[in-house]
Design a protein around this nucleic acid. Structure first.
Lengths: 342, 342
DNA sequence: GGGTATTGCGCAAACGTTTGTTGTTAATAA
DNA sequence: TTATTAACAACAAACGTTTGCGCAATACCC
């Protein structure tokens, strides 16, 4: 069965399609009597505007493109939830693409979004590749862009990121304050800005406390499995670390059982802390304190910034170089009572 | 800067738009010389077809609607990943909507998909509500539908689901075979079909082994926090259960620490098993064996079924009542060595 | 050389909207 | 009465494609 269109309504009532269109929008040009009659019929026929046509005509859709490197159970679900929340409020919808950590796929995804005339794009970059010209393409098309999470700090676009350096500094400080003098760390992919920031944060905390930052106690793992391997190497150091900073949930997941297993008593002999979205630390044993970086909030902020851009139109300007916002991480110190932070 | 359109190319070359359109599609009607010239210019100008226009003209988009109750870190990420994989292969994209467990929102989401002329819809129903007429709406519009995970068995549509009853039966059997005579269980929302199936599966296993199915040892929890509370009640039973079946990852997460904490030795005094997507059981301590229900596979199956439908067009038929497929769960018995199943 | 294919391309309509302009009628003002 | 203005609605173009049809011009056949 065909959807009923404006033309159908117009034909049945013997009026012009333009009249129907205006009537449905309460345009004062259409007399009240006719207007209500049209609305009534539209209702009866379950008329719904064809968005494709609307958007084609208006040269922009109510779609927001979301491009992520990969959909994992870590972090992204809550970010996406935050984004969804906001854009649904605005009557927009999400078209979601994943790049599989490939810059080519990422560029293609950007193009796909553009081809569908999305109103804006939210993107979490896959790696520290030179995306600048790709993103510049969007500026030329007048499509606003908000980077989130995995961003490149020097790109002249809006971006919402975590205070990575500061979170890592706080995490390390927490270890030091709980007595560690020789903490180790397992970071993520060393090419990612987020990793570099967190390394810097740890180094900073060490320096502030006049402790040496030893490279032998720093490992870099690209995934859960590597994290497990790194943890083994780390714990085998002599002397073993008296604390471990796990950079992400993934790292924590791979490493905690190794740390706990290597005749170490947590937190008596070895404190553990991580930066987390706030779920995993509760369900692992032992529970670990963490710096909660709120994915939901980050998603909301990114989406809200998107709508600010859409309303103000500031991004149209060639000179516009974006606004950077950061989300603070909050230290959550786990006692024995479980308090879930969903 | 405006996107270059077919018209732009046509104008620059002094030919008709239709000629350009055909040339770009290698239509034999257009002479080889002109054809290559057009292609060359299109390339230079970075021409990309406006999908909105293409779809409007062709009365169907290359979008697949995905409607889920809520985006959580449990299960859905892997399902979505599986879906993405398949539809990207087919050159389709995903428009994702969440219903917040509200039937009204769900209906609205279906409408939104229809308004955007999606090629098909993949949906995981929010609750056991009478969605039949809502879904019937899609049939009328000729939009194929594939239900997944949370399905209503009696709906005349394609659906991909887990073998819930069988998985629960196997899980329970595993408990019994490892010595349990008085297992308890924590299930999910009792209104969901998936819960009912799993209850049935457990009951079946108990009957097969001539053990009593005691209601006092069965609890129903809607979320992680409730699961924790249920676990406390369960463990307080006299005598305490000698095994626990956790119906989902969420339940496991809420309950394991309680079970482990209540002066019980896992698995010596109390075995634990759950049905899981295959991540959480590894990262919890103690690690628990589980029936792996593969979200990735389920997503892939659902998406593949969608394309079968799109190609065959069988769903057009008013009488078409859908095909039910199930995904088997596999028992993963965790030894002390961690083997991650990503 | 008359007829018939064949090749190569343009015309125009269509998808379902929106919106600027024009036109008709009736009401008001001069 | 005539001019002015409002009120209402139709017309038509446009968004960027695709596609059935028609029409030349060239090629082929006997």
């Amino acid at each position: 069965m065909k959807r009923t269109t404006i033309k159908d309504i117009a034909r049945q009532l013997g009026v012009a399609p333009s009249t129907v269109s205006r009537a449905l929008k309460d345009h004062p040009d259409i007399g009240l009597a006719l207007r209500t009659e049209i609305k009534k019929l539209a209702e009866e026929l379950h008329y719904r505007p064809n968005q494709l046509a609307v958007h084609l005509r208006q040269r922009s859709s109510k779609l927001i493109g979301l491009i992520v490197p990969e959909i994992t159970m870590f972090f992204y679900p809550s970010v996406i939830k935050g984004i969804q929340e906001i854009i649904q409020e605005h009557g927009y919808n999400l078209i979601m693409l994943s790049s599989h950590e490939s810059p080519e796929k990422e560029m293609e995804n950007i193009r796909i979004c553009a081809d569908n005339e999305v109103a804006g794009i939210l993107i979490s970059l896959s790696r520290q590749s030179e995306m600048y010209e790709n993103l510049e393409y969007l500026r030329e098309l007048g499509i606003p862009l908000v980077l989130f999470d995995k961003v490149s700090i020097d790109l002249p676009f809006d971006s919402i990121m975590l205070e990575d350096e500061e979170a890592a500094r706080q995490a390390t400080t927490f270890l030091i304050e709980s007595g560690c003098r020789n903490p180790g760390a397992i970071f993520g992919n060393p090419n990612m800005l987020i990793t570099q920031e967190r390394v810097r944060g740890m180094r900073k905390a060490m320096e502030e406390n006049e402790l040496p930052f030893k490279k032998e106690y720093m490992y870099f793992a690209d995934n859960v499995v590597e994290a497990e391997a790194c943890a083994k190497l780390l714990m085998a150091q002599n002397p073993p670390p008296d604390g471990v900073f796990a950079m992400t949930d993934e790292v924590l997941m791979g490493s905690l059982s190794v740390i706990a297993g290597s005749n170490t008593n947590i937190p008596a002999n070895c404190s553990v802390i991580c930066i987390s979205d706030g779920v995993l630390p509760y369900c692992m044993t032992p529970t670990v304190s963490f710096l909660h970086h709120n994915g939901l909030e980050l998603g909301q902020l990114a989406a809200n910034r998107m709508f600010e851009l859409l309303e103000s139109g500031e991004f149209i300007n060639d000179e516009y170089s974006g606004v950077k916002k950061t989300v603070q991480a909050k230290l959550i110190q786990l006692s024995s009572t479980r308090q879930l932070v969903f």
